[in-house]
Design a protein around this nucleic acid. Structure first.
Length: 269
DNA sequence: ACAGCTCCCTGCATGC
DNA sequence: TGCATGCAGGGAGCTG
């Protein structure tokens, strides 16, 4: 389940693996995972190489030598692999780039919640990312002022990519646990102090996860198939029925805004 | 306008 | 052992 730390880990892997790589060709196995710019193979070659890998929230952008931009959303199960040419084909490979030296970059996504979007240039990317909220790693100080007026549960606001970009179910629960706030609490019942605590909890939990290479829960893999390590440090996610690490009370679980949500009934109010 | 649902899809765990 | 069922979830799109 790639969220901000996992996507950032992939971005760093890609920067290292694709530095000075040349794209010699592209094979698309499923056009329906690719959106935009006429869906031409030629355009997917990104001018023959990738000059940069950007990230905002959970979205990645591969910037081509010709200025074109390929936006990547990993969804639930999307992953990249850079493999030697003789590597066996694996199922659900939707696109495969031929790199210099016989290597391949492939995009694999069994569940197909992810996808690729080809944009004309940086302006279109800026426009797209302007529709997202601020990246969760660098929330502006005034972020709290907007959040506090929403009519939803605080968890819904955290999951709304237009409010803050990069948070999914795992880190929403983790940040709320760290901040001592119940997921179902209405935004309007949060004090300025609560929101400030939440902002710093988000930042610290995401940074800690990033240092561990993200959380591998079920499906997420790094570029070379490596796993993250942060799943061992999760306080609440996936621990329903187990004791709270703070007070020992049994962690509760319920559906909140349609998502499985875990919290401590005493530490979080 | 906005909140809250359903649906998309596959792999894996569980139950009979 | 094998089959059916349920669950996981990001985001588009629809409903009330």
């Amino acid at each position: 389940v790639p969220e901000l730390p996992e996507v950032e880990a992939v971005a760093r892997d890609l920067r290292r693996a694709l530095a000075s790589a040349v794209i010699e060709g592209v094979t698309v196995h499923r056009w329906d995972v690719i959106d935009g710019a006429g869906r031409r193979c030629g355009a997917l070659r990104l001018g023959g190489g990738i000059t940069g890998v950007l990230r905002h929230g959970k979205q990645l952008a591969l910037v081509g030598k010709d200025g074109s931009v390929l936006v990547v959303q990993l969804g639930m199960t999307g992953e990249f692999g850079v493999v030697p040419g003789r590597a066996p084909m694996i199922p659900h490979t939707h696109a495969c780039w031929d790199l210099d030296g016989g290597r391949h970059l492939r995009f694999v996504d069994p569940r197909r919640f992810g996808g690729l979007t080809l944009l004309d240039g940086h302006e279109a990317l800026a426009e797209r990312w302007a529709r997202l909220g601020p990246d969760a790693l660098s929330l502006p100080a005034q972020w709290g002022e907007a959040i506090i007026h929403r009519r939803t549960a605080i968890k819904a606001a955290l999951l709304d990519q237009g409010a803050v970009a990069g948070v999914g179910n795992i880190y929403a629960d983790e940040a709320l646990a760290l901040a001592g706030i119940q997921p179902a609490r209405p935004c309007r019942k949060l004090s300025k102090h609560d929101v400030a605590k939440l902002r710093s909890a988000l930042c610290s939990v995401l940074r800690a996860a990033l240092r561990s290479g993200g959380s591998t829960v079920r499906t997420y893999r790094r570029l070379g198939g490596g796993q993250g390590a942060f799943q061992a440090k999760l306080r609440v996610y996936g621990r329903s029925g187990q004791p709270c690490l703070g007070c020992g009370m049994t962690l509760r679980s319920a559906q909140v805004v349609g998502r499985t949500t875990v919290w401590c009934p005493t530490c979080q109010t």
